[in-house]
Design a protein around this nucleic acid. Structure first.
Lengths: 211, 211
DNA sequence: AGTTGTGAAGACTTTCACAGCT
DNA sequence: AGCTGTGAAAGTCTTCACAACT
């Protein structure tokens, strides 16, 4: 029972999305070469990733899309009962992430939102319950919420994260600019548009210097 | 002139943010151990990362924060003239990213927004010019825009990306759910809250299975 | 005690090369 | 021709261990 490595897991998670998009075009088979075209990942790497699933869904005509999708979901535990999450911080970004909700069809459901501005929680209309931040620990515990999407402004990010660390949550997706560490059993994943821009720009800079 | 590796570059970019936050608390020195506490990165890795800068800003009392920050910025080309970017797709998410703008103080400036819905470009108020999507290629070229933040809905993501590939841009930060590859000289960085959630959840799943 | 800097070892990932199959 | 599956090689990254210094 080989564990699936981190890089492989990240690619497989994206691959599920790609497979869904390919299915919508009516395709039923896909080759590692086509996946390479669509994602930029080397085809050998793609085959190794799929091999790690031990799913046996490939043939000389390529992989069976539906079988592969199910195998990934099963291996990564992504088709189980709905995992509850909440959004912390209902500013413009938090509200956009909440409504934008590309979560449908996923194993996750947003079931609560918190903001320290009571005005915000009383006037916003969302398809889930909103609470003042002071009730956060209580609601997370009573509703058995496991994941948080953190979208406060930068100043509130650390204090809110410290509260989240302490209330039995399993993971945080941090959409604030503040860098936050994982803490004990609480996994943190930092997302930042600016970091992404800087990564692209500086990697191109270094490429130029190599020549 | 050793090139800086990808993992190192990503950490250094986040490290700059952390250093800024530490500076705001009045600190002037920081050790690799404290960086480990704040980020979760192993302290040996932190030291190696900083060593790659060849900046010589460490002593037995730790690193000089300001010198380290400048060294990273210089090595990664993050303090140069403003690099222009645009936002493609001005739905709720695009608008939030535009205004939320944690870009101030960075090497980037948003200077245009595009949407295929003319209503949107005419009624939204932003601190930069808005254009109908049909003018995208023309504006990107005439304004010398180098980077794009893609925030359309999923259906528009691929066609918009294909247009961006073709108009001389250097990089795209893709905030749509659609997986997009880098293409030629155009680097793409995919950002997804759902992917981040799934990563956290499935990594914890695998940890449990290992026991 | 603490710190950085660094060679060496270890662990991990990707890529190559090719067998076997359609 | 195409494809997957896979051992082996190559490449990359992290961690260990410790010298040198405050």
């Amino acid at each position: 029972m080989n564990a699936i490595s981190n890089p492989t897991r990240q690619r497989l998670i994206s691959l599920v999305r790609l497979l869904e998009q390919l299915e919508n075009t009516g395709k039923t088979k896909v080759s590692s070469a086509e996946i390479q075209n669509r994602t930029g990942w080397n085809r050998d790497t793609v085959r190794r990733d799929i091999l790690a699933l031990q799913a046996n869904c490939g043939s000389a005509q390529g992989y069976e899309i539906n079988a592969l999708k199910q195998a990934i979901r099963k291996a990564l535990n992504l088709n189980n009962a709905e995992k509850k999450c909440c959004i912390v911080g209902l500013g413009e970004l938090g509200a956009a992430l909440a409504r934008h909700g590309s979560m449908e069809g996923s194993a996750f459901v947003v079931c609560a939102g918190f903001d320290s501005n009571v005005n915000r929680t009383e006037t916003l209309v969302m398809p889930f319950a909103l609470y003042p931040a002071i009730r956060m620990e209580q609601v997370i515990s009573s509703e058995h919420i496991e994941y948080a999407i953190l979208a406060t402004d930068e100043k509130e990010a650390r204090p809110m994260a410290l509260r989240l660390y302490a209330c039995g949550i399993r993971g945080i997706v941090n959409c604030t600019g503040t860098v936050l560490p994982s803490y004990g059993d609480v996994a943190v994943h930092n997302l930042s548009v600016l970091d992404a821009l800087q990564n692209i720009a500086s990697s191109q800079h270094n490429v130029i210097e190599e020549n």
